[in-house]
């Protein structure tokens, strides 16, 4: 009995080691923290349009009354991964027809206008969050981040970081499809 007790440390270490090995999985992103907002209504905010862009801004009201599943993408012209993500978002909008709203985080109107002119504009609305207040309300941890908002203005899903690569895209699209399906079922039920 006593001898067995002396094996306890090794067992504990092996167990911990197993978890550590699991944690090393290259596909695991320790920074991906789910938002406290999940299943919560969107935070209260109202963003003005970007000056000179010619697209309307948006706020909580627009999201609550959207009547369909909407994506909110936090982006900025100064953010390098956003450029790479831009192509993915553009394709996603073209292929799925989902409504995409841009939360333009701490960006100069002239910069973002030039950026969108150059890369093309997949956004239906772009709100200018010049001082980052809306970003704080949304609790973002960095740029880019993308949220899936239900028709009733509930935050359904949050993706931290750029949606780049087949795995990330598949993950995000699955979440989007589920959201849209749930929405369709809810409508059919009504």
């Amino acid at each position: 009995m006593k001898r067995i007790l002396f094996f306890l440390p090794v067992l504990l270490v092996v167990l911990t080691g197993g978890f550590l090995l699991w944690g090393l999985d290259a596909d695991r992103n320790p920074s991906a923290i789910p938002s406290v907002l999940i299943s919560q209504p969107v935070p209260q905010f109202d963003l003005p349009p970007v000056e000179g862009l010619g697209l309307p801004g948006f706020g909580s009201v627009e999201l609550e009354q959207a009547g369909e599943v909407v994506l909110v993408n936090v982006f900025a012209s100064w953010c390098v991964p956003c450029r790479a993500e831009h192509a993915v978002l553009t394709r996603m909008v073209r292929e799925t027809g989902v409504v995409l709203m841009g939360l333009n985080y701490k960006d100069k109107p002239a910069d973002i206008t030039a950026w969108l002119d150059n890369l093309g504009n997949p956004y239906d609305r772009v709100g200018s969050d010049l001082d980052g207040r809306a970003g704080i309300e949304w609790g973002i941890s960095g740029v880019p981040e993308t949220f899936i908002i239900g028709a009733d203005g509930l935050v359904l899903y949050r993706y931290v970081g750029p949606i780049i690569g087949p795995k990330a895209e598949a993950e995000f699209l699955t979440a989007l499809e589920q959201a849209q399906q749930a929405q369709a079922e809810a409508e059919a039920g009504v």
Binding site: K2, R3, F6, F7, P9, V10, V13, V14, G17, L20, L21, L24, D25, A26
Partner: peptide, 28 residues
């Protein structure tokens, strides 16, 4: 870098696991 992580975890397994196994054998 996952490769580094794996190598290092291997080192840990040998150092910690090995010493504790020796302990379980000798300490009683």
């Amino acid at each position: 870098d996952p490769a580094r992580g794996i190598y290092m975890l291997g080192l840990l397994a040998i150092a910690i696991g090995g010493s504790l196994a020796l302990y379980a054998w000798r300490a009683p």
